[in-house]
Design a protein around this nucleic acid. Structure first.
Length: 512
RNA sequence: GGCGGAGUAGCUCAGUGGUAGAGCAGGGGAAUCAUAAUCCCUUGGUCGGGGGUUCAAAUCCCUCCUCCGCUACCA
């Protein structure tokens, strides 16, 4: 496993001021499926997630909670580790920006940028709203009744000037455009790529990368009055986790990242600022950034003020982990926005998992249990209809791989289900329960073909529904060592005569 | 305002020049091994409106309508 080709995949680090919601679960889930898939293919995978713990809002929340910022983030970052556990995420590391390794990495990156003349000290000036904690552009402001300027949010703004370090982003406009041009799959989906390119084409000016208005952040080396801009701090986590500033070993093997998975709201930071920082520091930009969509809740936009935030832990509690994982990736073409609905989730869970797939496994395994003395049946010669189904099962990996390489989870599941549906058609046409009396040898062959097909479905579903797929493979007596994509195809076929455990349901139906 | 995307069956979507597709939902039938699950058949669309190119357009061009995204320093 450690010998395989490297694969480095990341989630954004999550801002601890938020409570974990379905969006966090969704992003990490997508990465988890890819990480598991690559591991089954033999890649040397590093799957990274973590928490972003600096910034003014955290500092303020900590104060409101009567805690030191460090104690506060210790508490709230635990929520995200709990989420990872509940969702069955297989991350290899969990990084926190308050860790010493990260602060050292950030400062090393900063020094590198300074040495390369990519950062200089200037002044940042603009209209600042204390209430919004944000700067607003001149053209966004309106005049209030008393002649004062107002932000679009209605908050009063004041002219603020502070010393600030700037990153020479303006120098990187052309190199970035060349990068996007040379690597069409650097940003996905295409709609986001277009947006990023047009954004960069409009021109880039230097970026303020330090703040003096708060202290909860990574201190700027050599200037204790400043802390680093949160995004420079946050993005650097991807380097920290590979041991930066040490650039040999793990770093040399796994950088650049194969995929940064992000929500569509932060695509700019990952597809513009981040590659610019890296190029400026003499490091390679990541290979790909995928910006996925957002969920609505029963047709309504999700917002904290409306109070319709979806808690992934509650979903798992109610429906079970694998149905939730399956639904999130099956329901929506990945990259699009999607609508969460209990009714639709239950439809998918019952219709596809329980009825089509779970019941297929159950009827097949029950027949083997009862008609074949609970052992893998001995197949005879395969007929064309047997070959058709087996060929489809054997070909699943080759069909699913390219689809997952472009993060099309819904298509991958669609491909898997084409074989599930094919199997249901096959079992009905072959009717092994009728062959039992007329042609037991033929019945054995049919059940063998079905068991082999189930083995492939189980293997390919491991990344998506690891618990359920694992239970299916248990029932086929597949040894742990054989749960890898190396076992796909006839070479890894089930041995006739292998005793099987008593079958039991893989996917329960949901009933109220 | 500028740039970009989308509008196809009740719902979610596929389909980029050659007689309109899938899944779900609806209707009918078969089977009874199985988590009353499954299988087969089937109703349903003038492909947003209008104009044009072409032997032929959902697919190319023009125009209009509607919806959505982006339009720099909160994350």
């Amino acid at each position: 496993m450690g010998e395989g080709k490297p694969f480095f995949i990341t989630t954004p680090i999550y801002y601890v001021n938020d409570r974990p919601h379905i969006g966090h679960a969704y992003t990490t889930l997508a990465c988890d499926v890819l990480a598991r898939f690559k591991r089954l293919e033999g890649f040397n995978v590093r799957f990274l997630t973590g928490t972003d713990e600096h910034g003014q809002k955290v500092e303020k929340s900590a104060r409101a909670a009567g805690l030191a910022p460090g104690d506060f983030t210790d508490q709230v970052s635990q929520n995200f580790r709990d989420l990872a556990k509940t969702m069955g995420f297989s991350n290899d590391d969990f990084i926190r920006t308050t860790e010493r390794r990260h602060i050292l990495a950030c400062q090393a990156l900063w020094n590198e940028l300074v040495q390369r003349d990519q950062i200089y000290l200037g002044r940042y000036a603009g209209w600042y709203s204390v209430r919004d904690e944000a700067f607003w552009g001149e053209d966004e402001l309106s005049m209030g009744p008393d002649g004062g300027r107002l932000a679009p949010t209605g908050a009063a703004v004041e002219w603020v000037e502070e010393p600030s370090y700037f990153f020479r982003l303006s120098r990187w406009q052309e190199p970035l455009l060349r990068l996007y041009e040379a690597r069409p799959d650097f940003i996905a989906p295409d709609s986001r790529r277009n947006e990023v390119i047009s954004f960069v084409r409009m021109g880039l000016s230097d970026l303020s990368v330090s703040r003096t208005t708060f202290t909860w952040g990574v201190p700027v080396p050599g200037d204790a009055g400043h802390v680093m801009y949160v995004w420079l701090d946050a993005l650097a986590n991807y380097l920290t986790a590979l041991g930066y500033p040490e650039t040999g070993g793990v770093f040399a093997r796994h950088w650049p990242a194969d995929l940064h998975m992000v929500g569509k709201d932060i695509v700019r930071f990952h597809a513009v600022y981040w590659p610019a920082f890296l190029l400026a520091a003499g490091l390679a930009p990541p290979r790909r950034v995928f910006a996925h969509g957002w969920w609505t809740n029963e047709g309504q936009k999700i917002s904290k003020s409306v109070g319709n935030v979806i808690d992934p832990l509650a979903l798992v509690e109610r429906y079970g982990l694998d149905p939730v994982r399956y639904f999130l990736l099956r329901e929506v073409p990945f990259g699009n926005d999607g609508d969460f609905s209990h009714r639709v989730l239950v439809n998918r869970m019952n219709g596809e998992l329980a009825n089509e797939f779970g019941n297929l496994a159950q009827r097949t395994l029950s027949l083997i249990e009862r008609q074949c003395a609970g052992r893998v049946p001995e197949p005879g010669d395969f007929l064309p209809e047997d070959e058709t189904l087996l060929t489809a099962a054997h070909g699943l990996l080759e069909r699913v791989r390219p689809v997952l390489d472009r993060q099309a989870f819904h298509e991958a599941l669609d491909i898997l289900w084409s074989v599930v549906r094919g199997s249901n058609g096959y079992i009905d046409r072959q009717a092994p329960w009728a062959l039992r009396k007329t042609n037991p040898a033929r019945m054995a062959t049919v059940l063998y073909v079905l068991a082999e097909t189930l083995r492939h479905l189980g293997l390919l579903m491991l990344p998506f529904v690891p618990g359920s797929a694992g239970r299916l493979l248990d029932q086929l007596a597949i040894a742990p060592a054989a749960r890898t994509f190396a076992a796909v195809g006839p070479a890894g076929a089930l041995s006739a005569g292998t005793p099987l455990p008593k079958p039991h349901g893989i996917f329960p139906r949901f009933t109220v």
